[in-house]
């Protein structure tokens, strides 16, 4: 089962390496990981997606807790939340199909952020499903390159 952890860590060098090393050493699979500083410059937030059964997931959180640099772990898998991922997608495009692509971009409320002679770069933001769907529709035009950020999440409602 896919699960999402929101983890507060010390914003120090090497912390990402500690988390990554823990996952690889114990054979846990990271689906995606996104890191960024919080409003407190000393603290970063990691949004980690893993695929794990109940027992493995319990171990993952407990082992993460043992890292001295990990301050707080929240399992937000079943919380009402906003998930966002950003993808940059380079699609081959010329005058013959550019307007078709523009239509798809419009439907997805995506953005064209660069135009070249034979290709364009599209920026899509949304949850995983939306990005997957966009990729699906853009595929026939010829996808040259995709860069995805990995998911960031926030629990809905007032805190």
């Amino acid at each position: 089962m896919k699960r999402t952890l929101s983890v507060l860590v010390n914003n120090r060098s090497g912390v990402l390496a500690r988390v990554a090393s823990l996952f690889s050493r114990r054979g846990y699979n990271i689906e995606s990981i996104a890191v960024g500083v919080t409003d407190d410059p000393e603290v970063s937030r990691m949004t980690i997606q893993v695929i794990a059964d109940e027992a493995t997931f319990e171990q993952i959180t407990k082992q993460l807790h043992k890292l001295i640099d990990v301050i707080k772990i929240s399992d937000i898998t079943s919380d009402e939340r906003v998930d966002r991922e950003l993808a940059l997608i380079r699609i081959s495009a010329d005058s013959s199909n550019r307007s078709d692509i523009l239509q798809v971009v419009g439907i997805f409320r995506a953005k064209i952020v660069d135009v070249a002679e034979k290709s364009i770069i599209v920026e899509v933001t949304g949850d995983e499903g939306k990005i997957d769907a966009f990729v699906q529709l853009a595929r026939p035009y010829g996808i040259i390159e995709i860069v995805r950020t990995g998911k960031v999440s926030m629990v809905r409602g007032s805190k």
Binding site: G14, A17, R18, L22, I68
Partner: peptide, 14 residues
């Protein structure tokens, strides 16, 4: 050495 000993120490510091 902090990289090398990451998985075999409780914690380490550079």
């Amino acid at each position: 050495i902090t990289g090398i000993t990451m998985p075999i120490t409780k914690h380490n510091y550079l």
